[in-house]
Deep mutational scan, measured.
Amino acid sequence: TLFEALYDYEARTEDDLSFHKGEKFQILNSSEGDWWEVRSLTTGETGYIPSPYLAPV
C-alpha cells in the first residue's frame, strides 16, 4: 500500500525524512508506533516520518 503526505514536514533529527504535501511513500516498517520508516517515491530517500501526516493512496 502506498501512502501520500497530507502536510509538509521538516526533519528534526538525522533519522527523520523531510517531505512535501502530496509526496508518495512506500512503507518499510510501521511497527515502531507513530513513526514509520518509509522510502520516498519522489527522492528515493529513506527515513522516519510521523504516520499522522500520511493517508493511504
Rank of each mutant, 00 (worst) to 15 (best):
T1I: 14
T1H: 11
L2V: 13
L2Y: 11
F3M: 09
F3R: 02
F3T: 02
E4W: 09
E4L: 08
E4C: 07
A5K: 00
A5S: 06
Y7G: 07
Y7E: 10
Y7R: 10
Y7M: 13
D8I: 01
Y9P: 01
Y9W: 09
Y9H: 07
E10L: 10
E10Q: 13
E10T: 14
A11H: 06
A11D: 02
R12E: 13
R12F: 10
T13E: 11
T13G: 15
E14M: 08
D15C: 14
D15W: 15
D16H: 15
L17C: 04
L17M: 14
L17D: 00
L17N: 02
S18P: 06
F19A: 10
F19M: 09
F19T: 05
F19D: 00
H20L: 12
K21R: 11
K21E: 05
K21F: 05
K21H: 05
E23I: 02
E23L: 01
E23C: 05
K24D: 01
K24W: 12
K24E: 04
K24A: 05
K24H: 11
K24M: 13
F25S: 00
F25R: 00
Q26H: 11
Q26M: 14
Q26W: 13
L28M: 08
N29C: 07
N29Q: 08
N29H: 08
S30I: 09
S31F: 09
S31H: 10
S31V: 10
E32Y: 12
G33F: 09
G33M: 11
G33N: 11
G33E: 13
G33T: 12
D34G: 11
D34L: 14
D34K: 08
W35L: 10
W35I: 11
W35H: 09
W36H: 01
E37Q: 11
E37D: 03
V38N: 00
V38G: 07
R39F: 09
R39V: 13
R39E: 07
S40K: 14
L41F: 07
L41M: 12
L41D: 05
L41C: 12
T42I: 10
T42Y: 09
T42E: 15
T43A: 01
T43N: 07
G44T: 02
E45Q: 14
E45G: 08
E45Y: 10
T46P: 01
T46L: 07
G47Y: 05
G47W: 03
G47K: 03
Y48C: 08
Y48P: 01
Y48L: 12
Y48M: 13
I49Y: 00
P52F: 15
P52I: 15
P52Q: 15
P52V: 15
Y53A: 15
Y53I: 07
Y53E: 02
Y53P: 02
L54C: 03
L54I: 10
L54N: 04
L54S: 03
A55G: 10
A55N: 08
A55S: 12
A55I: 13
P56F: 08
P56D: 06
P56L: 09
V57R: 00
V57T: 09
V57S: 10
V57C: 05
